[in-house]
Structures are given as structure tokens and as C-alpha cells.
Nucleic acid binder design. Structure first.
Length: 422
RNA sequence: GGAGAGGUGACAGAGUGGUCGAAUGUGCAUGAUUGGAAAUCAUGUGUACUCGCAAGGGUACCGAGGGUUCGAAUCCCUCCCUCUCCGCCA
């Protein structure tokens, strides 16, 4: 959510942001609504003020005296007026809030102009995409793949996109999670093991409700949502809290399974391990001082990059253009790993600075040492990393002539062997 | 899941219809005192929104939401959470 004062005082800044994100939001009705909101708020408060002062007078009168009864009669009229104005204001307020939630975050000055993914800027490339493996093929075509990653049985037990990982498949998942968590810990991120079901308030605070309700699985008896990412429970950890400025920055990481309905996905995007309804991911999250957030974004991104480097996987970093930037992000990098068999880039991490956008919605603040006043923190998050696509990149890029898959050296201590067998 | 007891400011804890944003204690901050500290004394100490150039004013908030009433922290309803006992269970 944006600062309502920003809209009020500098609507052109908001207009420019909407244009840069290629969104279609008309500010004029929202500005008019805001004016109405303030006028009605004023009405209600004026009436209530009168009601309150009358309350003091009545307390001084003897109950049941003629003066008292007269006053009751008088105040009955005011009371019904208050109720009417309050009801009006409540309606306006609901509309006002809904309207405010349609305003996107302001892109950072360093975000490139552009409408679609084609205008994203490649700002770093690491490793070669040429002939990483002469034997590379899409991971689902690797002989023996079906034994380690059992999609048919997953479909029987649950549905499409819920594979069983078997034997070395399961072992590799576990090794990657372990590797990611250990590396994050070394980089200063405190490990957290969060709930993977959240309540509506938590889903709302990070913007998954109401905008993206369709992306999440929901429980029937209790109104809980299965998390689409650990960002949801992690960001909510400090919801409605005020942190000490000295405690910033706070670094946290969490491994969780993630659940996404992915309605509407099809074709090559969903082949093999490319896009699943349930997948494993280590998420990195930071709560930082506003003055430091862009430095913190860079260091988070560099940490995520270091993981791919240690796994010896070719990747590049995209700086998202305005049109491809999410609604809530001020700046975002995508890390894409090279998938040698599919000959395409696969997103394995998305590192974003939300500035105060999430913090305002979730009311996460810190007490400014200088002023003593609470101020909104900036939140930054990114994957570090998503397991299945990294796993498939390892399968494809490290496939040997003899059909074995070489385990990257950094992973060997966690996997226990140098080759994966089918 | 059943029965009972509770949820008040940073914490403890009063308040059962009116002048209560809320006593008191602790904590914290500032000042006085001291060679310095402790102790003591004084003053101050929530958040949000809104009006105002400002000084300052107004409104809301006593787990959440609704209701009764001229008026609700206080009465009623629903929900959430915590604790105790019973049941069940990794």
C-alpha cells in the first residue's frame, strides 16, 4: 500500500509510477474519493465531539431530573445523526481502502523503462551456455528420470504437479535444501521453520489477498491458506510490531514447501520439474532501515548468485523493467539458471525491494532513535533458491556420457556421493 | 473435542454504565541531588487518523467484530487467543 499522503500531495508521482508499470489506474476518481473521505471523517468527528461534551454535562445532572430527561431527548437526535454519518463514512472508508490498494508501488529510479519481459536488462552473466554438456537433454528425457521423480504416482495420490521424489531424487532435494540453509546461515540469515498454513490476515498483509486469492490452496474447515512461499509467514513474523532501530537489519531464512495452484499454466512451462503445485524453496528475508535498503537488496542478490556459482551452474541476472516489475515491488532482479537440455533460462530466484509497501500494509515499523517515533521498515526478499529448477539444471547440465549425473562439489558433502544414480 | 477461568498501556495490576486514554506500582527518559553511582525527589513517558504554516486542537483505539444505550473498558451476542482439568493423539 502506498502512503495516502503521497497520493494527496504529489499525485503526479503516482501517475508516473502507474505509467512506468504500464498499469491502467485512473487517479481522478480516487482523488475525489479521498476528498470525500476526509470531509465525511470531519463530519463524524465534529458530531462525536459534541456528543462527548454533552456526556460530561449529563454526568453532572441528577438522573431523572427534568433537565436530565430533556437532555436525553436532545441527545437522541444527535445520536441518530452520528449513526447515519458513521454509516456513510464506513461505506466511503471501505471504498477508499479498496481504491488505495489498487495503487502500485513506485518503481525505483534505477528501474529501466519497458513494457514487457523483452525490455528487461541482463545485468550479469556467469558461466557459459555453450556445450555445458554435449549429452544435455531435457531432464524428463534422461533415462531413469521416472524412477527418481514419479509423476504418475504423484498424480494418483494427489494430482498433476505433485511428484514423488524417490531414492537419489529425494536425496538430492534434501541435499539442496541443506546446502541452501547452511549457506544462508553462513551469510547471517537466522533459520526459521515457519507454519505453512496462514490465516487470511497474514495473506492480506503481504498482498496475496484479495488480489491473488486464486493462486493459493485453501483449507475447507478452517479458513487457512497453504503458503505459496515462505515469504508469507516470514514477513508476517513482525506484523504489527515496532522493532528497535538497533535491531536492524534483521536477516531470516526459511525452508518450506510452497503450494501454488498455477491455474492457466500449460505446455513446456509445466513439463517435468519446471512448474509444480508443490515445491521446495529456501526464502531469504530482510527487514532493513530505509536508508540502507538498496544496498541490502544488492547483497541479498549477490548471496543468491553465490549459490549458483558454488553449484557451478550458468546463470544470468535480469533487472526487471517497469512493465515486468510486480505491483508491489520497487525494484526486482530475477536470477535465471541455464537449462542446457531445454536450452532455456529458468527463473530460480526473484530478489525484490518492496521499500515500505509491504511494511505499511503489514504495519512493521522500527522506532527511530533520533526522533523516538515509529517509522516503517523496508522489506526485501528473494529465493535462495527454488529447489526443483536448480535440481533439473543439475540433471541437464551435469549429465555424463555414461548416463550418470555429476553432483557439484559443493553439494557432495550434503549428498554424500559424487554421482547420482538412477 | 468437552468443562471451567481469563484477555486492560513496555510489564504488573485497578477499574462493572457517565467527568476514563484509563488509578497505582515497576520500567524507561529528562532534570535535581552526588566526586561518581545507588537511593531519593520532580517532571515526562502509547498508537493511528485528521484539522492547522505553526503553536496547538479534534476523533478513534481497554483481544477482534457486531449489538443495546443519550452515553460502553464496564451490559448482550459471535469469533479469536491464553491458562487449568478431562478426552484424544505424532
Amino acid at each position: 500500500m502506498l502512503d495516502p499522503k503521497l497520493l494527496r500531495e504529489t499525485p503526479d508521482v503516482v501517475r508516473a509510477a502507474i505509467a512506468r508499470k504500464y498499469l491502467d489506474v485512473d487517479l481522478d476518481p480516487i482523488l475525489a474519493l479521498d476528498a470525500l473521505w476526509r470531509a465525511q471523517l470531519n463530519d463524524v468527528e465534529t458530531l462525536r465531539s459534541r456528543q462527548k461534551s454533552a456526556n460530561g454535562e449529563m454526568a453532572a445532572l441528577r438522573k431523572g431530573s427534568p433537565e436530565f430527561l430533556a437532555k436525553v431527548q436532545e441527545m437522541k437526535g444527535l445520536s441518530s445523526q452520528v449513526k447515519e454519518k458513521e454509516a456513510n463514512f464506513a461505506q466511503t472508508d471501505a471504498k477508499w481502502r479498496a481504491a488505495m490498494l489498487t495503487l502500485p508501488n513506485i518503481p525505483h529510479a534505477s528501474v529501466p523503462e519497458g513494457r514487457t519481459a523483452a525490455q528487461n536488462v541482463v545485468c550479469a552473466t556467469h558461466g557459459s551456455t555453450d556445450a555445458v554438456s554435449p549429452h544435455a537433454r531435457p531432464h524428463w528425457e534422461i533415462p531413469g528420470f521416472d524412477r527418481l521423480f514419479d509423476f504418475p504416482r504423484g498424480a494418483k495420490v494427489t494430482g498433476a504437479g505433485f511428484p514423488f521424489y524417490v531414492g537419489d531424487g529425494a536425496r538430492l532435494v534434501r541435499a539442496l535444501i541443506q546446502f541452501f540453509i547452511e549457506e544462508a546461515g553462513r551469510a547471517g540469515y537466522l533459520e526459521v521453520h515457519p507454519p505453512i498454513l496462514v490465516n487470511p490476515a497474514s495473506a492480506t498483509a503481504v498482498g496475496q489477498l484479495p488480489d491473488k486469492e486464486g493462486m493459493m490452496y485453501q483449507t475447507v474447515e478452517d479458513q487457512f491458506y497453504l503458503i505459496p512461499t515462505a515469504e508469507t509467514p516470514l514477513t508476517n513474523f513482525f506484523r504489527e510490531e515496532i522493532l528497535e532501530e538497533a535491531a536492524l537489519p534483521v536477516y531470516r531464512c526459511a525452508y518450506t514447501p510452497c503450494f501454488r495452484r498455477e491455474a492457466g499454466s500449460y505446455g513446456k512451462d509445466v513439463r517435468g520439474l519446471n512448474r509444480l503445485h508443490q515445491f521446495d524453496k529456501v526464502e531469504l528475508l530482510k527487514w532493513v532501515h530505509p536508508s540502507r535498503s538498496y544496498d541490502e537488496l544488492e547483497s541479498l542478490r549477490l548471496h543468491a548468485e553465490s549459490l549458483l556459482q558454488k553449484l557451478e551452474l550458468p546463470y544470468h541476472v535480469l533487472l526487471m523493467c517497469g512493465g515486468d516489475l510486480g505491483f508491489a515491488q520497487a525494484k526486482k532482479y530475477d536470477l535465471e539458471v541455464w537449462s542446457a537440455g531445454q536450452k532455456r533460462w529458468l527463473e530460480v530466484s526473484s530478489c525484490s525491494n518492496f521499500e515500505a509497501f509491504q511494511a505499511r500494509r503489514a504495519q512493521i515499523r522500527f522506532r527511530c532513535k533520533e526522533t523516538g517515533r515509529p517509522e516503517l521498515v523496508h522489506t526485501i526478499n528473494g529465493s535462495g533458491l527454488a529447489v526443483p529448477r536448480v535440481l533439473s539444471a543439475i540433471l541437464e547440465n551435469n549429465l555424463q556420457a555414461d548416463g550418470r549425473v555429476r553432483i557439484p562439489a559443493a553439494l557432495v558433502p550434503h549428498f554424500g556421493r559424487e554421482f547420482l544414480s538412477f
